Simulated scan of single mutants.
Amino acid sequence: MAAVTAAMVKELREMTGAGMMDCKKALAATDGNMDEAVEFLRKNGQAKAEKKAGRIAAEGLVKTVIDGQKAAIVEVNSETDFVAKNADFQAYVADVADQAVKSDAADMDAFMAEAWTADASKTVKEALVEKVAVIGENLSIRRFEKVEAKDGCVVDYIHGGGRIGVLVVAKSSVVNDAVKEALKNVAMQIAALHPLYVSRAEVPQDFIEKETAILKEQARNENPDKPENILDKMIIGRLNKELKEFCLLDQAYVKDGDLTVGKYLAAVSKEVGAEVSVEKFVRYETGEGLEKKSENFAEEVAKQMGGN
């Protein structure tokens, strides 16, 4: 049996990013064969990933990338905020975003099966499995979306170091610094106030019907003695107020409360001599809708120190 030297362990660790003891075990199990040891770690990484897959990954980062007229936004989750701040994890999320902007995948299954652009010898899924093994937490590429501006531009905005990310697709025959600055302001508005639609024209009828029913029930409970026709009139104002919150162009502009976002864009359009309009936006917030685990960080460290 070949002796496992410190130099061999160091070399394998630099090649794979795996832990020192894992590298030593891999070399011992493969009689010092470096290629087999790498394969051993990959297989072991797969086992680790499967073991960790049941753990909640609700922290992480949102990342955007713009490539000319195309752009992509991704959310990659980790178990802890500590890992989300790790430089290795952040570099990996940037690679995922680069993968997304070049991808033709229509869904997550197709995306995970693609060749990993950072190393075409593996798939996106295999690269994720290896990263789980290196970082030691369950990680998840939760979602991605790719957009394209055919007659204008795309701008992005990242808030809170990656907690919220926004892409805004705009139509404009003029694309200059003033237009991009205005759209960046709109992206910040979207990050802060979380609209659901660009305009009222986008609001689905079933959404309006559902909200109307809820508002009518509220009005009926508050005014049990009023007839139905009066309640119907009361909820019109309430529904309009809600739609102003849900629709971007109807929202009060955060930098000037005397304007709506629609009126702000109209003013910008007049200034640059071309109509600037928002065609689409995408807003991701890290862990949105996911259950977040509640665990004492000191206890987690103690568990890891104890070998668990």
Score class of each variant (00 low, 15 high):
Asp250Ile: 01
Arg163Pro: 06
Gly273Ala: 11
Glu211Tyr: 14
Val4Gly: 03
Arg142Trp: 08
Ser103Ile: 06
Ala213Glu: 12
Val83Lys: 06
Gln304Gly: 07
Lys303Met: 14
Leu12Asn: 07
Tyr253Ala: 00
Ala133Lys: 01
Gly306Met: 14
Ile158Thr: 15
Asn138Arg: 08
Asn138Gln: 12
Met188Glu: 06
Gly307Arg: 11
Ile73Glu: 00
Ile208Leu: 15
Gly289Pro: 06
Met34Ala: 09
Ile66Gln: 00
Thr117Gln: 13
Met112Ala: 14
Tyr284Asp: 00
Asp22Tyr: 09
Leu259Thr: 02
Met112Arg: 10
Asn308Pro: 02
Ala18Cys: 11
Ile158Phe: 07
Ser277Phe: 04
Glu181Trp: 00
His194Met: 12
Gly273Gln: 11
Leu243Met: 10
Lys210Ala: 15
Ala149Ser: 08
Pro224Lys: 11
Gly19Glu: 06
Ala127Gly: 13
Ile230Cys: 08
Glu209His: 10
Met112His: 10
Ile190Leu: 10
Met234Thr: 14
Ile135Pro: 01
Gly287Gln: 01
Ala170Thr: 03
Gln90Cys: 09
Thr80Phe: 02
Lys63Phe: 04
Asn221Tyr: 10
Asn86Ile: 05
Asn77Gln: 12
Asp104Pro: 02
Ala170Met: 01
Lys244Asp: 13
Lys150Glu: 14
Pro224Glu: 12
Ala219Asn: 01
Tyr284Phe: 15
Ala106Met: 13
Glu222Asn: 10
Ala6Glu: 14
Glu59Asp: 15
Ala105Pro: 03
Gly68Ile: 04
Asp31Gly: 15
Asn33Thr: 09
Ile158Glu: 11
Asp151Glu: 14
Ile56Gly: 04
Ile164Thr: 12
Asp22Gly: 10
Asn185Asp: 01
Thr80Gly: 02
Leu183Val: 09
Glu291Phe: 04
Asn138Phe: 06
